[in-house]
Amino acid sequence: MAVIEAKDLTKRFGEFTAVDGISFEVAPGESFGLLGPNGAGKSTTMRMIGGTGLRTSGSLSVLGMDPERQGPEVRASLGVVPQSDNLDTELLVRDNLIVYGRYFGLPMREVKAKTETLLEFAQLVEKANAKVDDLSGGMKRRLTIARALINDPSIILLDEPTTGLDPQARHILWDRLFRLKEQGVTLVVTTHFMDEAEQLCDRLVVMDQGRIVAEGSPAALIRQYSTREVTELRFGASRNEALLAELASLAVRAEALPDRVLLYSDDGEALLEEVNRRGLHPLTSLVRRSSLEDVFLRLTGRSLIE
């Protein structure tokens, strides 16, 4: 049975439709992603799952309950990692976990024991008595995640978990999340980073302007909507557009972005050779595997990060 089941889920703010009739299911133990640019409706969907966002229409069931009517019960089994850290900077690192555990009605002894385990999990044992303000961005994020685990949630909602972190901090975080996944926790992740979605998600939906435009595993989406490889060429801003027609005839598909041209094919190197043979000589070139970024570009005509 699905742990989350959304059907024609819709949320309007006045005239603006933030979430426009989306349907999806999340299976227990699955790692499910909502991928899309800012404003696609991902965070609004997350809020509705936690019962702090009211839906305009459609149905939503979380662990068999309606989050609007049984909010406290639903949230008792959720771990929520919001987009921006809302840790209490007036409390020490350890105390942030303790007070949060209390909100779930856990006895103080249990909370204290759990806090020590989680400090270890979040690799923050040495910082237990530090002030929150003295933590790095990555540490704060790990503390927020540890906080979300204090109630042993069966579903964890992560809203943009690594936005604003440096690459090393991101990898540490992904590693922690991966461990949770191995323990059978259901993860629901929103992100506008395709590499993150590829790292974390078994299955994802691509959202744009409140709608789901595609659904599948990262690999299946790439197979379906893109070619195996991409050749990125830069000719300088003025020439990119001018050469597009000629370049397009060499590839399965071509996209001109303001700063570069993307050529889709199954053999990027061969394509690059052909470009050079024709004397087009780009200023720089790069051959890479297709990513979810390309899927998104194909589906919406826009890139994920504006």
Partner: peptide, 21 residues
């Protein structure tokens, strides 16, 4: 139902947090 205690004593947990702060 796991939310029984917070439903009843949630106000006190908030007070606890506030006093700690």
């Amino acid at each position: 139902m796991k939310a029984l205690k917070p439903r009843r004593f949630g106000w006190w947990y908030v007070a606890e947090w506030r006093l700690r702060g």
